[in-house]
Amino acid sequence: MDIREYIESGILELYVYGLLSESENEEVSQLAKQHSEINDEIVSIEKSIVNISTSFSPFLSAENFAKIKNKLEIKHSKVIELKPKNNRLQYLGWAASAVLFIGAGYQYYNQMQFKDDFLNLQNEKSKLQEVVVSSENKTKQTLHDLNVIRDTKNTVITLGGQAAAPKSSAKIYWNKETEVVYVDASGLPEPPEGMVYQVWSLVLSPSLTPTSIGLLADFSKDNNRIFPVSNTGNAEAFGITLEPAGGSATPTMEQLYTLGKV
């Protein structure tokens, strides 16, 4: 900790004036015990306040005044009445103290305001960085999806809507050399809560044999809705059904949304 910077911050004046919270008072007290420079500064501030008060408003109590008057009466038969001291200097002393209080308080307020502004600026910077990172990730994902669609080595299979969702559609991009398969699900509606789309690779002969090749999870989070799925093997057709979350062992034909032959 920079002791000089801490001393010049104005917090020690507020400590002496009793304007800090209990926790802040405790913090200053602990630092004063640990650092002699801080303790010396506190003592110096206290002495300055005492000097200001005594120089502007010397105090004479009623008890002391009575003692002095009694001694004068013993020594002299005639006592000269003392007139009350003009309070003008006393008022000036209080005014000087008030100005000192206000100045220290204003300095403290400015420091707190600067701290708040700095924290707000840091928060805005963090939010901006998050936006930039998110934007970069979305851009990379979009470029990747475009490369998938534009790959001339892909076999493109169009899946048409079925009885469960006649207006639905989808496309399969199947690169038989790399055995990479992607599903363009932009033609499918948002799945209901607790449901998920499941993609099936179908062998039609000698008997219909469906094999699950993936779930279209996080459907709403992917704006492009292009999903990678598993290798299809010797698929003769593809279908997409709506299944309970987690998928099913076999397709629910009543929820067959799209279907298409290779």
Rank of each mutant, 00 (worst) to 15 (best):
A95I: 05
A95G: 04
A95M: 07
A95P: 00
A96K: 14
A96L: 12
S97G: 11
A98G: 07
A98H: 05
V99G: 08
V99L: 15
V99F: 12
L100S: 11
L100T: 01
F101I: 11
F101A: 12
I102S: 10
G103F: 10
G103C: 13
A104T: 01
A104E: 02
G105A: 13
G105S: 14
G105D: 08
G105C: 07
G105Q: 05
G105F: 07
Y106F: 09
Y106Q: 05
Q107R: 15
Y108Q: 07
Y108F: 06
Y108D: 06
Y108H: 09
Y109C: 04
N110V: 01
Q111S: 10
M112V: 06
M112P: 00
M112Y: 04
M112S: 12
Q113L: 12
D116L: 14
D116T: 09
D116V: 12
D117H: 10
D117L: 13
D117C: 03
F118T: 07
F118A: 12
F118M: 09
N120V: 12
N120D: 14
N120R: 11
L121V: 00
L121G: 14
L121H: 05
Q122Y: 03
Q122G: 01
Q122N: 08
Q122P: 02
E124G: 01
E124N: 12
E124H: 08
E124Q: 13
K125W: 01
K125A: 14
S126I: 07
S126A: 15
S126G: 04
S126N: 13
K127T: 01
Q129V: 00
Q129C: 02
Q129E: 13
E130S: 11
V132H: 10
V132Y: 07
V132K: 15
V132E: 15
V132W: 06
V133W: 03
S134Y: 07
S134L: 13
S135W: 03
E136M: 14
E136R: 14
N137I: 07
K138G: 09
K138N: 14
K138I: 04
T139R: 12
T139K: 14
T139L: 15
T139V: 05
T139H: 13
K140W: 01
K140L: 13
Q141D: 09
Q141F: 03
T142R: 13
T142D: 10
L143V: 06
H144C: 00
H144I: 00
D145Q: 06
D145W: 04
D145Y: 04
D145K: 01
L146F: 08
N147H: 08
N147D: 09
N147Y: 03
I149M: 09
R150H: 09
R150I: 06
D151N: 15
T152K: 15
K153F: 03
K153G: 05
K153E: 11
T155K: 14
V156R: 08
V156D: 03
V156E: 05
V156M: 03
V156F: 03
I157F: 02
I157L: 10
T158R: 03
T158K: 10
L159R: 00
L159A: 00
L159F: 01
G160A: 11
G160Q: 08
G160S: 13
G161I: 03
A163Y: 03
A163H: 06
A163N: 11
P166C: 02
P166H: 02
P166F: 01
P166G: 05
K167Q: 07
K167D: 07
K167W: 00
S168T: 08
S168G: 05
S168H: 01
